[in-house]
């Protein structure tokens, strides 16, 4: 399993534990409502979507023999933007909800987080799209 795939899958496993742990914490705190969006997004984006990104990088048909996972730099950029964006959201959204007096301070963090996660989705789609294809036909003339 290539290095980038291991990073995606192991990070996804950490998010699974984090999300379920947050689910427990949620039941014991007065901030329950403020934690709910972060809980769902840690589970659905951090765990499920990240696991899919990693496994898709590994399993989809190769782009070319030289670049089996298409643009590897873009794959790492997707990993970075997805995780920085998600962590920013997971921290800023509950804090913004409980620190109403400092709402302005936290206001732009969700915007940055949203843009980073959107860029991650776009980067994944751009890289995965040409790999979603049928088998290559042999070239004519035996070449």
């Amino acid at each position: 399993m290539p290095s980038i795939v291991r990073w995606y899958v192991k990070t996804a496993l950490l998010y699974l534990a984090l999300a379920l742990g947050m689910g427990v914490w949620q039941q014991t705190t007065a901030w329950s409502g403020a934690l709910m969006p972060a809980y769902w997004h840690l589970f659905l984006v951090g765990w499920l979507t990240q696991l899919i990104f990693g496994i898709a990088l590994w399993m989809l048909p190769s782009y070319t023999r030289q670049q089996p996972r298409h643009n590897e730099t873009l794959n790492w950029a997707v990993y970075g933007t997805l995780n920085v964006g998600l962590l920013l959201r997971a921290v800023a959204e509950p804090l913004r909800a409980v620190q109403k007096g400092n709402a302005a301070m936290w206001g732009w963090v969700p915007v940055v987080s949203a843009i980073l996660q959107w860029l991650a989705a776009l980067g994944f789609v751009v890289n995965a799209w040409p790999r979603v294809r049928g088998p290559r036909r042999p070239t004519r003339g035996g070449g």
Partner: peptide
Amino acid sequence: IRMSLLYLLAGATIGVFVLADKGI
């Protein structure tokens, strides 16, 4: 799979505006 990739982009795009509204 290609349809699902388009839904990912569409859903994420809506999410940008919802999260931005939460922020500012």
